[in-house]
Amino acid sequence: MRRPLARSLTALAAAALTLPALTSCSDEPAGLVIYSGRNENLVGPLIEKLEKHLGTNVDVRYGDSAELSAQLLEEGDRTEAGLFLSQDAGALGALSKEGRLAQLPPKTLDRVAPTYRSAAGDWVGVSGRVRVVAYNPDKAPTPPDSVHDLVKPEWKGKIGFAPTNASFQAFVTGMRVLEGDEAARAWLKGLKANKPKAYENNLNVLDAVDSGEVSLGLLNHYYWYEQAAEKGADKLKAKVHYLPKGDPGGLVNVAGVGLVKGADKQQSAYAQKAADFLLSTESQRYFAAETKEYPLAAGVEQADGVPPLESLQPPKIDLGRLDSLKETLAMLQEAGLV
């Protein structure tokens, strides 16, 4: 079970001024240095496999994706990092916009559909996740087909969400990109008026839905499937509903990788091999089986029971434009949700 990650306003505000404290998986001289916004508990087993694949030591420095992105911008060509493994596309988009990522070769990019990679060719998604509505059939027998319905009076006091969670904030950023700031601001104010219940993380939201504490909640799909695998689907009262017709609440976001521009020749070579490894069948099957995320490389199927990615109806969006997190955080604060 992954440990849910939260992103705080204080930490993000400080990111541009103070480099985050990072941890390394090894004190040995590194063949490859990775800045990882993904949880060590989640990707640790893959890093061990990567070390064997590369035949060299890998030094992973863990932190928040947005903070690591800010650090890479601060370091510039002085960075020791060869590869950036991000929890979300927004942090990769921020580096791409500033020209801090190197071009990836077509053979790497072409393993993933254009929707889930950089239009500039400098980052690529390695796993995907979709936003869903978790609902309790006893409390919400007919879940809404749009997040815009959540501001209606019938859902007052019945919604659970995790406002400090990076995926919720990415969803709000996506709404801003898709519908404009004024529409997103109005939705947030409407949500606040409906008195949603805030939780620390997505897993807490799912537990609240399952127990009937709230009628429905906003979270990523894999939390339900992980719980179903652990406890048995028949033991869960909560169900998941995929939003149709390109609704912004059905955003598909990705975790992805980019090669850091300015890295030395050896770092760059190892980083390229690492990116290809994360798109290999072995790694993609790991994401599907162990994390219940969507494998993005062609030819690898999702976990049993998870609907195929191509069957979903997510909004069409350039994921690199999810980089304006600072503005989203300010909007959430203005609405009184964080």
Results as ranks from 00 to 15, higher is better:
residue 139 K to R: 15
residue 251 L to A: 05
residue 313 Q to Y: 01
residue 175 M to A: 13
residue 267 Q to M: 14
residue 109 L to W: 06
residue 140 A to S: 08
residue 269 A to F: 07
residue 219 L to Q: 10
residue 260 V to R: 03
residue 245 K to Y: 06
residue 68 L to T: 02
residue 50 L to S: 06
residue 124 V to I: 08
residue 181 D to S: 09
residue 263 A to K: 12
residue 27 D to T: 15
residue 46 L to C: 05
residue 20 P to L: 04
residue 138 D to R: 15
residue 266 Q to P: 00
residue 52 K to G: 14
residue 6 A to N: 03
residue 196 P to N: 07
residue 244 P to I: 01
residue 280 S to Y: 01
residue 247 D to H: 03
residue 219 L to T: 13
residue 255 A to K: 02
residue 80 E to L: 09
residue 107 K to V: 07
residue 93 G to H: 09
residue 263 A to V: 11
residue 10 T to L: 14
residue 194 N to F: 02
residue 150 L to C: 00
residue 294 Y to R: 05
residue 99 G to C: 05
residue 221 H to R: 09
residue 123 W to R: 01
residue 325 L to S: 02
residue 112 V to S: 02
residue 83 L to M: 07
residue 25 C to Y: 01
residue 175 M to W: 11
residue 171 F to E: 09
residue 322 L to F: 06
residue 240 V to G: 00
residue 295 P to N: 03
residue 28 E to T: 08
residue 248 P to A: 07
residue 115 T to I: 11
residue 195 K to S: 13
residue 102 A to R: 14
residue 55 G to A: 13
residue 278 L to N: 01
residue 5 L to H: 05
residue 162 A to D: 07
residue 102 A to M: 06
residue 241 H to D: 02
residue 24 S to L: 06
residue 78 R to P: 00
residue 266 Q to S: 14
residue 217 G to C: 04
residue 74 E to W: 09
residue 195 K to E: 13
residue 242 Y to K: 10
residue 266 Q to V: 15
